[in-house]
Design a binder for these strands. Structure first.
Lengths: 181, 181
DNA sequence: TATCACTATATCGGACCGATATATATCGAT
DNA sequence: ATCGATATATATCGGTCCGATATAGTGATA
């Protein structure tokens, strides 16, 4: 699912400018997807050329035109086709966890500080999301929101309960046999 | 943290070819990061030019040279500096959840099938990861692995316990006027 | 003997992001 | 009254990264 398709999808909720679509990405999809202007504006231009959206330019005195985009029947049809495709696998990237892969190159104090900060970050994101949850109207959005909160909570608990595994100094012995499975 | 830096990091564990680095990404970092050959090979070339890795070409009869890369002292220093930077925020993308944002455009049966498949996917990935967990030697890797398993488990449980929210038919009322804002 | 999976390299086109540029408007702080 | 921050609103450039594709030998399995 590319940004172009997602823009089309957001326009099924009503007409919008590129700027408003960017806000929609942040407000209702932040935990699931994000997109920058450098993807949104070209997408909108392409969708217009393809006839999947129409563009009404509101000229404003001494300001650049406000371009309001609406989805066309052809666009609606196209989007409907797209969301019936099997979704691609989730993608997750974490610089934090990548750094921890190399925790043997860091001082113990640094590892602890890293984990403390990450927990704080997760907590803050979870709180922001929780607050936003109440504002959402649709069931879909509530569901999405709840998913995000759950994941942050799980991450926080895991870090708290298992941080000792990489904070403790490595046992100086011949490596013990690990019980496989 | 870009792929180039991560390649440098993986070389702190020992010398490797580009192909082996790709395998390392899949075997020990899959749930945290991934990289394709189209990123790895150029990264290795650039690191060589920069003097952060050295390259020993093992010429093989009737096959392209096997290029074995090793990290240099300068590379080690550079990487150490890099992992002391504050890590960027996690990034998560889910076509599955994005699709669910538009579940009002799908038939209830399709939504259920989508969720069933996703749960199956998560279960499979979790099992693969669990199995791999036993094989890992270092505490860091055990920790990473456990993190992944925990997250998959949390996702599965959330989907199972909350799917009714979007599977249930929406209450039939006058449709409120919506906008993307 | 054919097919598959693995080792091993590399590039092209395209998707996407971060930084930057350009204006104006509004609102609170100094 | 002015200053800085934030918001509205557009758009592009350089660069990173991925998916698809190309090439080619080896060994195992069917």
């Amino acid at each position: 699912m590319d940004i172009r398709t997602l823009c089309l999808g957001l326009l099924t909720f009503g007409e919008a400018t590129g700027y408003e679509i960017k806000k929609a990405f942040q407000d209702r999809m932040s935990m699931v997807y994000d997109a920058s202007f450098s993807s949104i504006y070209p997408s909108l231009n392409r969708l217009t050329k393809e006839g999947l959206v129409s563009c009404r330019a509101e000229s404003q005195s001494r300001r650049p035109d406000r371009k309001v985009y609406s989805i066309t029947p052809a666009g609606r049809e196209e989007f409907l086709k797209e969301i019936h495709n099997a979704p691609a696998a989730d993608k997750f990237r974490s610089d934090f966890l990548a750094t921890l892969m190399f925790s043997h190159l860091l001082q113990p104090g640094n590892v602890s500080r890293l984990i403390d900060n990450q927990i704080m970050d997760y907590r803050q994101k979870k709180d922001e999301l929780s607050q936003g949850c109440g504002m959402k109207q649709s069931q879909s959005e509530q569901f999405l929101c709840g998913f995000g909160v759950t994941m942050y909570q799980a991450a926080i608990e895991y870090l708290e309960q298992n941080r000792h595994l990489i904070e403790a100094p490595a046992p100086v012995r011949a490596p013990a046999k690990q019980s496989v499975k």
